[in-house]
Amino acid sequence: MTILVFGATGQVARELAMLGGGVSCLGRDQAELSDPEACAAMIRDHAPRAVINAAAYTAVDKAESEEDLAGVINGAAPGAMAAACAALGIPFVQISTDYVFGGTGETPWQPSDPVAPPNAYGRSKRAGEAAVIAAGGIFAILRTSWVVSCHGHNFVKTMLRLGAERDRLTIVGDQIGAPTPARDIAAACLTMAHQLIAEPEKSGVYHFQGRPHVSWAGFARAIFAQAGLSCEVVDIPTSDYPTPAVRPLNARLDCARLETIFGISQPDWHAGLADILKDLKDR
């Protein structure tokens, strides 16, 4: 069974490739997301059993000045992929983000809650969600948050570098969410794709993130503790760390529906962090 994956170098795509099991990953040299119709053509040419889109425009701050490009890659391209999958009668799994929500309050977001993206990146991802749903096929949208792994650029690798260089760091302490290991996201996407082939009625929007909830500052402390680094972490408010794109203060996601429908439980990010540190050490 071939499952076609858009993406080859991103965190989730690399984990999907490592999981194997009939997965075929397409890099940018094969499928450029700025050309939605070419992406749809790749699906028609490969005729897979299911498709997972693990590729995206992820430069959150840069998207403020490149919203049109982000909109094509994160909005139009998934819509074209979903339409191609609908025409073939195969499932399409789209990875999305907590950034589609307004980021206020303290209650974990439900999949059915109203969306209100606070920045260009969130708007582009929401456009993708809407296009996937409008395609009318078999689909799953998986919203996640704070993706980490031993690959590419992410918070864990940045903290390990800075923690080894400095004795003290100021980290935002009022943004609350949860890190989610890319390996767990990849496994969840595969499970969902396989189940949707047999049970298309499971189509819908789902949430998936690690547990328990934590601030960025708290996560940094956990990284340093597990890595044996003595760097001090001082909490600061988001207002003391301005960025071009507005960041949500509440990135908590309610993941109960995913466990009920697909049997996928939230992973403990402490264990995922230990695996990432081991992978980095073994390199």
Rank of each mutant, 00 (worst) to 15 (best):
A131C: 13
W109M: 08
G128N: 14
E129K: 14
P111L: 08
G137W: 12
S112D: 00
E106H: 08
G137E: 03
E106C: 07
G122V: 09
E106P: 00
R143T: 06
R123I: 13
G136Q: 13
A130E: 15
A135I: 11
E129T: 11
E106V: 08
S124L: 11
S124C: 12
R126H: 15
D113G: 11
P108R: 07
G136I: 04
V132E: 07
I138Y: 11
P117D: 02
R123E: 09
A120S: 15
A127H: 13
T107V: 04
P108Y: 12
G122C: 10
N119L: 09
A130R: 13
V115A: 10
G137Q: 09
Q110E: 10
P118F: 04
I138E: 06
N119G: 13
D113V: 02
A135K: 11
E106G: 08
A131S: 01
S112M: 00
L142V: 01
P111F: 04
P111G: 02
A127E: 15
Y121K: 01
V115T: 14
A134C: 08
V132D: 06
G137P: 06
R123T: 10
A116C: 07
W109A: 03
Y121L: 05
D113S: 13
K125F: 15
D113M: 10
Q110A: 08
P117G: 06
P108D: 04
A127T: 14
G136V: 03
A116L: 07
A131G: 10
V115E: 09
P108E: 04
A116F: 00
A134I: 07
A140E: 06
P117H: 13
R143L: 04
A130Y: 05
S124H: 12
A135F: 06
Y121W: 13
E106R: 12
T107N: 05
R143S: 07
Y121D: 12
R123W: 09
I138N: 12
R143C: 01
N119M: 09
P114M: 04
F139Q: 06
G136L: 07
P108F: 15
P118I: 11
G122K: 10
P114G: 03
P118G: 00
G137R: 10
P117K: 12
P111I: 01
I141Q: 01
I133W: 06
P117N: 03
A134R: 12
E106W: 02
P111Q: 02
A120L: 08
A127R: 14
I138L: 05
E129Y: 13
G136D: 10
A120Q: 05
T107S: 00
V132H: 02
A131Y: 03
E129N: 07
P118Y: 04
G137N: 02
K125G: 11
P117I: 09
Q110K: 00
P111Y: 01
Q110I: 00
G122E: 02
